[in-house]
Each structure stands twice: as C-alpha cells, then as structure tokens.
Design a protein around this nucleic acid. Structure first.
Length: 754
DNA sequence: TACGCCATGTTTTTT
DNA sequence: ACATGGCGTA
C-alpha cells in the first residue's frame, strides 16, 4: 500500500474508486498518468482483478509502453497480461481474430496514409477527374472524417446533405470516390487506419455475441487522453463498458489538439449523459512547473471560451520569467537556441536531456538541427519522416506484404516493376482492370496472365509470379528473419541498392539491413510466440518512429512538434517559430477557423516546461526556398506581460529580404551572378489551354481520323492520323495552338467534340 | 519502355 | 528546396 501514500487527495480518489464510471479531469502536470497507472496497480494488487480483464487505451505506443513499465514497477511481471495499447493496435488485434465475421481474412493488410493517398490518386485518375480538384489529401480527409463519424459510403451516397456539401465544394464526385475507395480496400484485403475503428464498430453492432464476449472479458476499461477521442472511438469504449459500467476516462479539455482527426470535446459532455452515475474528479494541483509558467499558461487558456471550469495552481517556487527572443532569421533562431542551451548547461549544470525544442511544423527542425550540429550538441529529432516511410523500406515491406496478401493492390503496384522487368504502367493498368472487370482476385489474373495480357510483358509477369510463389514457400517454412532476408536478396532489391555507391545509396542499403535487424530482434524476443513474417508485419503496421530507442546514448536534446510533445515534460523548453501564420497556423485558421485549438496547442507547449521557458520568433524565414517576412505571433501578446522578460542580447539587426545572410563574399557574389545568368534566359511560360469546367474525357476506342477533340492542356485540335501498328494505339493530333502531337490513347485524356 | 528535362506544387499536426 | 509528374527522345 506504500505507493498510495504519495498521492494527494483527489489523486487518491481517482485511484481507489474503481467501481462504476469515472471521469478524471486532470490539469497539465497534475499527475494523471500516475493516477491511471496506480489505478490499474490497485485493481490488480488490492482488488485481485486478473490483468487479463483490464483494458487500457492510450494514443501512442510510447505512452502505452511507458505506462506498462510503470505498472510493472508496482505490481511486477503480473502486468504482462494487461491489454494495453493504442486504440488502433488493440482493435486491429481484435479485428484479426474476428475478421471472418466481416468477410475479411485475418491476415488483412493495414494501409498507412501513403497507401491510402496513392489508392485515391489512382481512383481519381481512373475516373478521369482532375487531381487538382480532387487532391488526395483533401479527399482522404473527407473520407476519414466520414468514417470517424461512422458514416458508411452507402449512407454517404444516400444522404443529400453530403451531396449538397460536395457540390458546394465543387467536388460532386466525392461520394463515388468514397465508394470506390472502400470497395478497393476491401478487395485488396486491406483496412486503413480509420477502418480499424469503423469496422470494430460494425463488428460490435452486427455481432452481438462478439460484443458480449468482449464486454465480459474487459471488466475494467480505462482511457487516457480522453479529450482526443473521436466519436468512433468513444462508441467502442462505451459499448464495451455498458455492462460492467467500470469505465474510467482521464483527460484535459484544455489540451485537446486533435480536432483535425475528429476528436470531439462533446464526448466529455456525452459521457456525463451516457453514464448518469458518473463520478467526476478534478486534479488541479500542478507538480510540474514553476508558478510563473503555470500562471502564464492560465493567462493564455483563459482566452478560450469553451473550457470546463478548472483552476490549475501550484505550490512550486515562483521561478524565472519566460524569456522572449527575437531573431532576424530562422538560422539565427537556431544559433540562439544552441548557445542558450550551452550557457544553461555550463552555468546551471543541466544535461542535454533537460532541453526540448518544440515547433509547430516538422519542417522547422532543419534550422535548429543545423545549429545544434555545428555546436556539437547531441540531439534527436522525433517524428518527421519515419523510418518506415523511407522508400527502400517501403519497397521491401511491399514485397513482404504482397507475398502474404496477394490481393494488396498498393504493394503490387510498388513492386511489379521493381527492379525493372519490363512491365510498364500500361500492363499494370490492364491487369488491375481485368481483375475488376471479371471480378476475380488480382492474383488469379497474374497466375493466368496469358489469358489476360498476351504479349511481351506476359513472360515477365510469369517470372514475377514464380518469384512470389517461392517467397511464399520460404515464408511458410522459415521464421520471419530468414524469410525476409531471402526475399530481400532474391527480389533483387539488395543487389540494386548494393550497386549504388553514392552516400545516399549506402545509407539506403544500411536502412534495409536495419529493417532486417529489427526482424531478427523480433524473432529473438522470447515473449513472441508467433515468429512468422505475417506476425511481424502485423506487429509493425501500427508502429511509428517512436520505437527507435537508443539505449546506449540517452543524453540528447529533444526536437519535436508540439503535438508529439503531449504527455512529456522537460526542465527547459524552447517554443520556436512563434510567428503569425506559422503558429497559429495559416492553414488551420483558413480551413477550419479554429483559433481556439491553436491556442490549446500553445497551452500544451507552455505546460511542457518545468523550470525555464523560452519563446522565440524570427523576423524572416525561408519558405519554399524563398525568404519571407514575418510578424510576431499574436500568442506572444496574449501572455500576461508580467511573466515575460525580453532578452535583448539577440536580434538587433534588421532582416535583409531576398538575400542570404552574411556579408557578400566571393562565394555569394558568384552565386548571385550565377542566379542572374540563369534568370537572364527568359523562360517562356507555356500558355496551356484551360479545360472547360465540365471537361470529361471521352471513350477514345473509336477515335477516327478527322475528329475534333479537346485536350485538357493543349486545347482543341483535329485528329490527323491514327497509328495502330504498335501495341499501343496512338493518335496524331494537330492542335490549334501547339501544333502536331502524338498521343498515347491509353493515357491521354481526350474529349471528342465532334 | 526507360531516361532526362522541365514545370508544378508543397507544408499542419498523427494513428 | 525538394519531390513529383508529364512529356519528348532514344
């Protein structure tokens, strides 16, 4: 019981009241993770609950892992059997074991957002739509938000409200794309991130026996970061605990920063309605930060209208004021940060790990990184381009994925001509289309290729099929590591990378080796029972970059976005890039007009700091390679000025727009002349034709000489000659403005005018 | 079909 | 600055 003696009163309440629904509203730094972990420990130790019956949901793998460690410290290895993980990973696991109920195989693939985007891109292309109007990002967001509100494509198409919405947004085909996207995913035996939640809802809705099973199993449900759950997630947890009523949610409405992902503060209000016996506990004492930091944070968040009543306070020392630094450029900002870190380290005995640099967008890491590297300070960048998003890794993963799930269209497209085997886009399209037209699996087309694609490419496809079949055999007979190395070697990927002796090529080769190492590690982990490649892929699909821990060298400065800093704390925190339009983000303001969420983000950034906090902004910054002028963020003025100390040591010079920093030396003159000479060659901007708004490509299979056509870029022209000699039909068209062009009919979008 | 040149767009955050 | 994609050429 000794671990309980360290708790204050509301924390204690939160730990020991394990029965019935509970909502713990926890201010920043009030020890919410501690309450959550002790609550679980209490359930196991004092209440004798089997860890097997406890489900604990978090938002990141990192948070889950940390919590498991902390619980193990109190209850020992007994915590092994806890169901603890992110929403996505826990329900992916459940979906795999119940997949047949939904008509999926249990080895379904999980599409990451890159896969989703490229699938959308091909659909848009196939529909003959303009991908400038139907941008993959925008379309995916729309689909994602529909799924997060549990609107299926059937409901979407049936509801005139969505139709009107899309028509107003000049995107009338959205419903059709949504439908095609879902059908393609299903046919590929794939689920995207949102499907994992959506389909869990479907599973529990349509299969009461399954729901009962898990309701019985999870007698206690705990949810961390409740303010960031979306409707889909909320309904799952609500259903699971509707029998036992033992649900505890922990969150802070002031730290809700994932509305763009469908997070819904209304969940907090709904929760009170759905569970009338709710016990509400407020944790308001902050143990993390100095008084100055807590008060400054309060002065910021007080500007938001829609917050729950809560007053965070601290008994800590007053502490230093927030230092505000203005720099002339992003590079100087980086230099300031690194010298301030250096000064603090030498004067006050801090280590690298006591510092974090937080920014709004990942791209801001570059300037900071450069400065830290120059001054020899160890650092680590979290997020950004993760290991698993690298091209070479995705390539090998695509081979592994395809061998296991031959319906996976995205992986297929990735590897069919990699390394080059003479199977071009045309052949790929034909194969995919054949699978759809005959309503058969893609694999069936591939194995009977002569029937669908007679000709030169067929041989290559047959070889590809033989290759994949041999991979499948090695996957069945060997463990994950041996199978993966076999595939890496025999696919020709390793060979191709090995041949590349550039620094980049070497790096990529090493990355592939690293992936293989990771697989080896997986195989060698004693806990893991299923050592097959399939098991590894399932394990890895939902893992992000947060996994790569370097145990030997742990003393580094942390660089990350504010989003990924949630839940963490550091003695010294730099919030950089406080410029209007960057933070608050222009994008966010114009698309969703949500200043309050940006402000909550600012609040999160401030409350990461324990002892010292720095704000920094630059008067000019590079964007798309161009220097732009910047205004200080409105957020700086929103902090009560009595908490701010303006540091005048830096930033006395004014920015020089349009040229790089530093005195114009030989190099920069040379560079400038080079630029000028390049500019001297006038680039004539091509005056492309603007296709009419209702431009739709026609079926060109019956195109005849003499027909008048419209091309989306070249405008109007007359078909001069048809060339049917080759494998691909071509048409020579004389355009009014561009002269004669030869167009491949399988590619070109042409509208037949008459 | 493969390769190289050039025009174009991109950056908000994450599972 | 950088990646992508279209188009022309071999």
């Amino acid at each position: 019981m000794d671990y309980l003696s360290t708790l204050n009163e509301p924390q204690y309440e939160g730990v020991v009241n394990t029965e019935g629904p509970a909502m713990i509203i926890a201010g920043a730094g009030s020890g919410k993770t501690r309450v959550l972990t002790y609550r679980i420990a209490y359930l196991i130790k004092e209440k004798g609950i089997d860890p097997f019956n406890i489900l604990s949901l978090t938002f990141t793998n990192k948070a889950a892992r940390e919590m498991r460690e902390r619980i193990e410290r109190v209850v020992g290895l007994n915590a092994r059997n806890l169901w603890m993980g992110t929403f996505h990973s826990v329900f992916a696991r459940i979906l795999r074991s119940e997949a047949d109920r939904l008509g999926y195989p249990s080895n379904f693939t999980i599409y990451d957002s890159d896969d989703s985007k490229s699938l959308i891109k091909t659909i848009v292309k196939e529909f003959g739509l303009d991908d400038k109007v139907y941008k993959p990002n925008v379309v995916l967001n729309r689909i994602s938000s529909a799924k997060n509100r549990l609107v299926s494509w059937e409901e979407y198409l049936a509801n005139p409200l969505y139709e009107a919405d899309d028509a107003a947004a000049q995107k009338p085909e959205m419903g059709r794309i949504y439908k095609a996207y879902c059908q393609r995913c299903f046919k590929a035996n794939a689920m995207d991130f949102d499907d994992l939640l959506f389909n869990t809802n479907v599973l529990f809705r349509d299969h009461v026996d399954v729901l009962n099973k898990y309701q019985h199993r999870f007698k206690y449900v705990l949810v961390d970061e409740f303010q960031d759950t979306n409707v889909s997630q909320y309904l799952i947890t609500k259903k699971l605990s509707s029998v036992s009523q033992n649900i505890a949610v922990v969150g802070d409405d002031a730290q809700s920063i994932y509305a763009f992902r469908g997070a819904n503060i209304e969940n907090i209000l709904n929760f009170e309605k759905d569970f009338p016996d709710l016990r509400v506990i407020k944790l308001e004492q902050n143990y993390r930060s100095t008084q100055n930091i807590v008060k400054a944070a309060n002065s910021v968040i007080a500007r938001n209208k829609g917050q729950l009543k809560k007053s965070v306070w601290t008994a800590n020392d007053e502490g230093n004021r927030i230092e505000l630094i203005k720099s002339i450029s992003d590079n100087e900002e980086g230099r300031f940060v690194s010298s301030a870190i250096f000064e603090q380290k030498t004067q006050n005995n801090y280590q690298n790990r006591d510092f974090a640099v937080l920014y709004r967008t990942n791209s801001q890491s570059r300037a900071i990184e450069e400065a830290l590297r120059k001054s020899g300070i160890a650092y680590k960048i979290y997020g950004g381009l993760s290991f698993y998003q690298r091209k070479e890794i995705k390539d090998l993963m695509a081979y592994l994925r395809f061998a296991i799930n031959t319906a996976d269209e995205q992986s297929f497209r990735r590897i069919i001509n990699l390394p080059k085997r003479g199977i071009g886009t045309t052949s790929v399209e034909k194969m995919v289309v054949a699978a759809f037209e005959h309503d058969i699996p893609l694999w069936e087309v591939l194995t009977n290729i002569q029937a669908f694609l007679p000709g030169r490419a067929a041989n290559a496809v047959e070889q590809f099929v033989t290759l994949v079949k041999s991979f499948q055999i090695s996957i069945e007979t060997k463990d994950a590591y041996e199978a993966a190395s076999h595939i890496a070697k025999n696919s020709g990927l390793l060979k191709e990378l090995y041949a590349d002796k550039t620094v980049e090529g070497l790096n990529r080769y090493e990355n592939v080796q690293e992936l293989l190492n990771a697989i080896k590690e997986f195989v060698d982990t004693p806990d893991v029972e299923d050592k097959s490649l399939g098991a590894f892929l399932q394990d890895i699909a939902l893992l992000t970059d947060a996994d790569n821990e370097d145990p030997e060298d742990t003393d580094f400065v942390s660089l990350m976005t504010i989003h990924s800093s949630k839940g963490l704390e550091f003695k010294n925190v730099f919030v950089v890039g406080l410029e209007e339009d960057l933070f608050p983000s222009q994008m966010m303001m114009s698309s969703r007009a949500d200043l309050e969420e940006e402000r909550r983000l600012f609040y999160v950034a401030i409350t990461r700091a324990q002892e010292n906090l720095y704000f920094s902004y630059a008067l000019s910054r590079y964007r798309f390679g161009r220097l732009i002028n910047c205004e200080p963020s409105r957020f700086i003025e929103e902090v009560d000025p009595s908490f701010i100390f303006v540091n005048t040591r830096y930033g006395s010079r004014e920015p020089q727009l349009g040229r790089r920093e530093g005195p114009p030396g030989v190099t920069s003159n040379f560079a400038r002349n080079l630029m000028a000479s390049k500019k001297a060659v006038p680039k004539k901007p091509p005056q492309y034709h603007k296709p009419s708004a209702d431009f739709r490509p026609s079926d060109t299979s019956n195109l005849q000489e003499g027909m008048k056509v419209e091309h989306p870029k070249f405008g109007f022209g007359k078909v001069h000659k048809m060339d049917t000699s080759g494998a691909n039909k071509k048409a020579k068209v004389i355009f009014e403005d561009f002269g004669e062009k030869t167009l491949l009919l399988s590619f070109a979008k042409l509208r037949i005018v008459e």
